[in-house]
Simulated scan of single mutants.
Amino acid sequence: MEEMSVPITNAGHPRRSWQQKTKFQKRLFILMATTPAFGGYILFTLYPNLLTIYYSLLDWDGIKEPVFVGFQNFINMFQDQYVWRALWHNVLFMVTIPPLVIFISLILAYLMANKKYRFNSIYKVLFFFPNVLSTVAISLLWAFVYDGTFGLLNAGLRLIGIDVGNFYWLGEQETALWATIPPAVWGGVGFYFVIFMNAISTIPKSLYESAILEGASHTTRLFRITLPLIMPIIRVSAIFLILGVFKGFENILILTNGGPSGSTDVIGLYMFNNAFGTGTHNYGYASAIGMFLFVILVLAKLVIDKLTANRDAEY
């Protein structure tokens, strides 16, 4: 009796052929799925950064023939007192804006998540509302608040018996820098309020119920339960806020443009004005400042990770 023959492919291994085909299809799918994102990363992130490194070695205004100057831009940058003044302003913002945003957002989120207010949903919308506005709108709104003639701040002070006249808060060196902090805090609280409130809502209610039965106060529950369990979210938020403080300058550009007399200048705005501001354009020098800012951001990220490592809590 003749034996039935089985079709043999790929050197007599039909199962291996099927596995190889499946593996090829998986690789093709991964390649097709990641190529757009990877291509976008190369085109819009990696290539501009490499180009910035190249520009930082040039003396170039964008029009004339570029001149290779090596590390001279970096030497000039470290000798530029305006760079260090702008960086100092960034440091002041770093130690004020992120802590204020996180503190206010945490308190609001904790209250909204653990207390049943009558107009709870309305409060949530009001707290998140500033985040809906653009940075330009927020800056223009606060510029009106600080206006010396028609400003709401001066009018409010007069109502409580403090008459400061037509004092321009953004026009005086003593107050301009500190006046730029409230707009940044007000514009950032809404977003992190939502983040923290969602994080708090994932904590099991049984933990709070057990703490209440043991007589724990709201403060104890906040510091012994809430904060330890959402610490990873707080750490990521702190990283984003600190990096945003160092990179961002849009609100300063609109409110003061670094004035008066550079008293509100920040490193990002100083870099922008060197590249695109009025007067002499120096893309090489601006690129050197950008590389310096990149190193600062990387070091800040590493320091935050080091200080907050292995402090997560679990339930």
Rank of each mutant, 00 (worst) to 15 (best):
S5W: 01
I8V: 13
F24L: 14
L28V: 03
F29M: 12
A33R: 02
T34M: 09
G40H: 04
T45W: 03
T52P: 00
Y54H: 05
W60P: 13
W60T: 11
I63M: 09
P66S: 10
F71Q: 06
Q79H: 15
N90W: 04
T96L: 15
V101H: 05
F103A: 14
S105T: 10
L108V: 10
M112N: 15
Y123S: 05
L126R: 07
L133G: 08
L133S: 10
S134A: 06
I138W: 15
L140I: 06
W142N: 13
A143E: 13
Y146H: 08
L152H: 06
I162N: 02
N166V: 02
Y168D: 12
E172D: 13
L177Q: 05
T180K: 11
A184H: 12
V185I: 12
G188H: 12
F191P: 03
V194D: 03
P204T: 15
K205W: 01
L207K: 11
S210K: 00
I225D: 11
I233T: 12
G244R: 05
L253V: 01
I254E: 09
G262F: 15
S263T: 13
T264C: 13
D265S: 15
V266Q: 02
G268V: 08
L269S: 07
Y270S: 11
A275I: 12
G279I: 12
H281E: 04
N282A: 05
N282P: 06
N282S: 11
A286H: 07
K301S: 15
L302H: 03
D312Y: 07
A313Q: 03
E314Q: 08
